[in-house]
Simulated scan of single mutants.
Amino acid sequence: MDQDILVRNNVKVKGQGRQSIIFSPGFGCDQTVWKSVADAFSKDYQVILFDYVGSGHSDLRAYDSKKYSSLHGYAQDVLDICSALDLKETVFVGHSVGSMIGVLASLRHPEYFSHLVMIGPSPCYLNDPPHYFGGFQKEELLGLIDMMEKNYIGWANMFAQTVTNNPERPEVKLQLEERFCSTDPIIARQFAEAAFFADNRDDLKKVTVPSLILQCSNDIIAPAAVGEYVHQEIPASILKIMEATGHCPHMSHPEETIRLIHQYLEEASTAGSLVVRGVTI
């Protein structure tokens, strides 16, 4: 069964460290987006990479439209991987919706995780005035889903450009576009619906695992107000504003991403985990 899980999610393990660190991709991406960042941790950590079912080299036969109609299905896969590898006190690094998948996993089994690192997280993409600004009107997201159905290639081009929002790094936009186009359009659309119409705001205050929030500058997908909101709601959290622009700093600005994660983990280690399970000691 454990081997089936590792094959299902195309799990790759490398590195020499005692502590493990698992990298969770964002929407429409596979584990290859982490290459630059993950390699930098392989000397000090056991690095774990995986693909969501339906992306990368995962086992497409395992795709279940009911299970993956919500983020809870993806969170269960993360927990399955942790169980299969017998992980404890793992550093979880999630990008975008991968961050919320990590949140949901940590609520069910906090003992699996020592820290959550969230890159461009958003608990809710919809605006809910007057107290919450997620960045999108419902009509905009419905239009996005409709475009995926009618012109998937055109959507992939447009969305990759919106996500990166970085004209100086056109290669990152192309890399994202290629990954979107390599995913089955039906699976991609269902994942988009699960991600963009989720509302995990109430889950944030329940998080007990110490967390780092990395907020990019000029991020259209997860605006600065969202990063502030996540920080305010998660009790034991730290917010860092990045110089990196766009929504994919692990691809466009890997050096800054690596430095901030390393700094956070080193400070936590040096302090002897000053914050444990949301309590300052």
Rank of each mutant, 00 (worst) to 15 (best):
residue 6 L to K: 11
residue 9 N to C: 13
residue 9 N to T: 03
residue 13 V to C: 05
residue 16 Q to P: 01
residue 16 Q to E: 15
residue 24 S to I: 01
residue 27 F to D: 00
residue 29 C to F: 12
residue 42 S to L: 08
residue 44 D to Y: 14
residue 44 D to E: 15
residue 45 Y to A: 04
residue 45 Y to E: 06
residue 50 F to H: 12
residue 52 Y to I: 06
residue 54 G to V: 03
residue 58 S to V: 12
residue 59 D to Y: 06
residue 60 L to H: 13
residue 64 D to H: 12
residue 64 D to R: 08
residue 64 D to M: 11
residue 66 K to D: 15
residue 67 K to R: 14
residue 70 S to N: 11
residue 70 S to Q: 12
residue 77 D to M: 09
residue 82 C to A: 15
residue 91 V to W: 05
residue 97 V to E: 07
residue 99 S to I: 02
residue 109 H to A: 07
residue 109 H to S: 09
residue 117 V to N: 01
residue 117 V to G: 00
residue 120 G to L: 07
residue 121 P to H: 05
residue 121 P to E: 12
residue 123 P to C: 02
residue 126 L to P: 01
residue 131 H to M: 07
residue 133 F to Y: 14
residue 137 Q to P: 03
residue 138 K to Q: 15
residue 138 K to C: 07
residue 138 K to Y: 14
residue 142 L to K: 11
residue 151 N to V: 07
residue 153 I to L: 11
residue 155 W to R: 09
residue 160 A to G: 09
residue 162 T to P: 02
residue 167 P to I: 10
residue 170 P to G: 04
residue 191 F to P: 00
residue 193 E to Y: 08
residue 194 A to S: 14
residue 195 A to T: 14
residue 197 F to Y: 05
residue 205 K to M: 10
residue 205 K to F: 09
residue 210 P to Y: 06
residue 210 P to N: 05
residue 210 P to G: 05
residue 212 L to S: 04
residue 214 L to R: 04
residue 218 N to A: 14
residue 219 D to G: 08
residue 222 A to G: 03
residue 225 A to L: 13
residue 227 G to H: 07
residue 229 Y to L: 09
residue 234 I to K: 00
residue 234 I to G: 00
residue 236 A to M: 08
residue 238 I to E: 14
residue 253 H to Y: 12
residue 254 P to S: 10
residue 258 I to P: 02
residue 261 I to Q: 01
residue 263 Q to E: 15
residue 264 Y to Q: 07
residue 272 G to H: 06
residue 272 G to C: 04
residue 273 S to H: 15
residue 275 V to S: 04
residue 278 G to M: 06
residue 279 V to F: 11
